[in-house]
Amino acid sequence: MIERFSLPGTITSMHFDTITPAHPAWQAQALCAQTGADFFFPEPGSSVREAKRICGMCEMRSACLEYALKNDERFGVWGGLSEKERLQLRRTR
């Protein structure tokens, strides 16, 4: 949820809006939605092998990766890539 303040008329009449971003359709179809976040957001130093295995079978993998790159996701496994792998990919683009 994103909170936004706007001034519809004057400074004295402040208006508060709440914007809820649209839920990307691919997320509901992704395999990670059925397995839980523990695999995809492991403790530092833990293996991401299982997350990558699940991602490898997921039809939404490319949409997931594009989402992570577009939104600068810094943590977890997205689209089959770890944080370091996504950073390397961003640098080569």
Rank of each mutant, 00 (worst) to 15 (best):
S46R: 15
T20H: 10
R74T: 05
M57K: 12
A25V: 03
R91H: 03
L89Y: 06
P24A: 03
F41H: 10
V77H: 06
F5K: 11
A63V: 02
E66M: 12
F16W: 14
G79M: 01
F41G: 12
T10R: 10
S47P: 15
F39C: 08
N71Q: 04
D72T: 10
F16H: 11
P44C: 04
P8G: 05
D72E: 13
V77G: 09
D38T: 15
I19L: 12
F40W: 09
D17N: 03
E59M: 08
L81Q: 06
C55Y: 05
S6D: 14
M1Y: 09
R90T: 06
C55I: 07
F41W: 13
F39E: 13
P21K: 07
S82C: 07
T12R: 08
S13R: 09
K84R: 09
Q34D: 11
A28G: 10
I11E: 11
L89D: 02
S82Q: 05
Q29P: 00
T92M: 04
A51K: 07
T20R: 05
S47I: 15
T12D: 09
R86P: 02
M14L: 14
F16N: 00
C55P: 06
W26S: 00
Q34T: 15
G45V: 14
H15Q: 12
D17G: 00
Q34N: 07
E59A: 15
N71K: 01
V77L: 08
L7N: 13
L69C: 00
L87N: 04
Q27D: 10
P44K: 10
G36T: 15
Q88S: 08
V48C: 09
T18K: 05
N71C: 01
G80A: 04
T20L: 06
H23W: 07
K52F: 04
E59I: 04
R53G: 00
Q88F: 02
F41P: 08
F41K: 08
R49Y: 14
E73V: 09
G36V: 15
K70C: 06
E3A: 09
C55F: 06
G9D: 13
G45A: 07
E66T: 13
R86G: 00
S82M: 02
E73C: 06
F75M: 06
Q27A: 13
R86L: 03
L65S: 05
C32S: 11
R74D: 05
T12V: 10
A30F: 09
R91V: 00
E50Q: 14
K70M: 04
E73R: 11
G56S: 08
T92Q: 07
A22E: 15
P44M: 06
D17T: 14
A51Q: 04
R93D: 08
Y67I: 07
G56D: 13
L65K: 04
A28I: 12
A25R: 02
T18H: 11
F41L: 15
L89E: 02
I54R: 02
F41A: 10
P42Y: 11
T12W: 13
Y67R: 03
I11Y: 15
R86Y: 07
L89W: 06
R90G: 00
E73L: 10
W78L: 05
W78C: 00
C64G: 09
E50M: 12
A28T: 10
K52D: 01
R4Q: 10
S47K: 15
